[in-house]
């Protein structure tokens, strides 16, 4: 095997203000508390990442990757939120103006979350497809971000399948035919209330 280059280390110092970035266990993207920016190591430099802060009540912010997506199945192509709702069998009323919007996959970016909780959190939020209201600012408490965009995109198909009903999943031809294509991902921070070990989002009736 050809000799590979050695291990590389990149100092976690904010390229904008020179402040030292905190390196929490499992982090892959690092927030700068001074200038309210996120930095991700790529090759031998730190690259800026945008963070969308969502409005809501909560003391701690959990980061999620948001991917617009479309699904091709044996039954056809799903490209809008309305079609996605029908695919999942969700009969709850959807505002007419949101029918034609692209559906969004929510994939937890938080570090150290056990695989089954990760799947559950992604499934619940994707199924709910909540209305997202952004606000200006930077979260004061952001849980460590332990999943990069590429890794999150690898989970897209699994999270999407987790949102479908068991009848569809029992059909092997259907499973074979599912192909999820994701667009460019964006990081968002969702506020949660802390309830002991659990995190609660009151407005969306969501507990993870």
């Amino acid at each position: 095997m050809a000799r590979e280059p050695d291990l590389r280390v990149i100092p976690l110092i904010c390229p904008d203000c020179g402040a030292r970035l905190p390196a929490e266990e499992g982090s892959v993207i690092f927030p700068c508390g001074e200038c309210a920016l996120l930095w991700e190591p790529r090759e031998e430099a730190l690259v800026r990442r945008e963070l969308r802060l969502l409005a809501g009540e909560g003391s701690v912010h959990v980061s999620f990757w948001l991917f617009p997506f479309r699904v091709t199945t044996a039954g056809g192509e799903v490209t809008t939120l309305g079609e996605y709702r029908r695919l999942t069998g969700n009969s709850n009323r959807l505002e007419p103006e949101r029918q034609g919007m692209p559906p969004l996959l929510f994939i937890p970016a938080v570090a150290g979350m056990p695989p089954h909780l990760l799947l559950r959190a992604g499934r619940l939020l994707t199924l709910r497809s909540p209305v997202l209201t952004s606000r200006r600012g930077f979260p004061s408490r952001l849980m460590a971000i332990g999943r990069g965009e590429r890794d999150a995109a690898l989970m897209a198909q699994t999270i999407l399948l987790a949102t479908l009903g068991p009848e569809r999943l029992r059909n092997l031809s259907f499973l074979r035919s599912v192909k999820v294509t994701v667009g460019e991902g964006g990081l968002c921070a969702i506020p949660f209330l802390e309830r002991g070990e659990r995190l609660l989002h009151g407005e969306w009736s969501l507990e993870i």
């Binding site: 590979e4 291990l7 280390v9 976690l12 030292r20 970035l21 690092f30 730190l46």
Partner: peptide
């Protein structure tokens, strides 16, 4: 020097 460092490897 107490600097935090990110670790990456080739490929």
């Amino acid at each position: 020097c107490r600097t935090a460092l990110a670790v990456t490897g080739s490929a």
